[in-house]
């Protein structure tokens, strides 16, 4: 089983997320994570979908996604050079005695403290999967009260891009 990262450009229409999510569930594909937001073009949204499966599953995922009229373009960036990031917010319970330790950990991971309570610290950290997981593990002994991850977003390195413009997808059909 391999993890693939797909960059999917979709029409920014109501219901498009439901179409994509519904497709995954009814065809039995597993979504590892899904992040969505609009792009430089407000009519277009971009989904970054991390999906687990062998080559055959991935081929079906891609082909079935293509059948959705609202899906404009799909790029599997897994095999390419790309940057990926995820953001996590973690609320840790810390009494004042341990605050220093936690702040040191935050420092190591270049995380930021975004909120401070009497017995809690809320930290923000960005990075790839591995870093976020390691950050989470190192905070676990202190007691994680709450954790939220955005899901991964990805972009190709260098001059190449997975945007709309590079394959002439804007032509009209008779």
């Amino acid at each position: 089983m391999m993890r693939h990262t797909l960059a999917v450009l979709v029409e920014n229409n109501p219901g498009v997320l439901a179409r994509v999510a519904g497709l995954f569930s009814r065809r039995g594909f597993n979504i590892d994570s899904l992040a969505v937001g609009r792009t430089e073009n407000p009519a277009v949204s971009r989904m970054t979908i991390v999906v687990e499966g062998d080559a055959r599953v991935l081929e079906q995922v891609t082909k079935q996604l293509h059948k959705l009229v609202d899906v404009i373009k799909i790029s599997d960036v897994t095999a390419e050079e790309y940057v990926d990031r995820e953001l996590v917010l973690i609320k840790v319970s810390v009494d004042p005695a341990h605050r220093g330790e936690v702040m040191q950990i935050a420092d190591i991971f270049r995380a930021r403290i975004v909120d401070l309570g009497r017995r809690t610290l809320t930290l923000e950290c960005t990075g790839n999967d591995g870093k976020i997981n390691a950050f989470e593990e190192s905070l676990r002994p202190y007691g994680i009260k709450e954790l939220v991850r955005t899901g991964k977003i990805a972009m190709l390195r260098g001059a190449r891009f997975t945007g709309l413009q590079d394959n002439g997808t804007k032509e009209e059909v008779q």
Partner: peptide, 9 residues
Amino acid sequence: ETVQLRGYK
């Protein structure tokens, strides 16, 4: 007169 569907070809 024409159809504009960039996601359907």
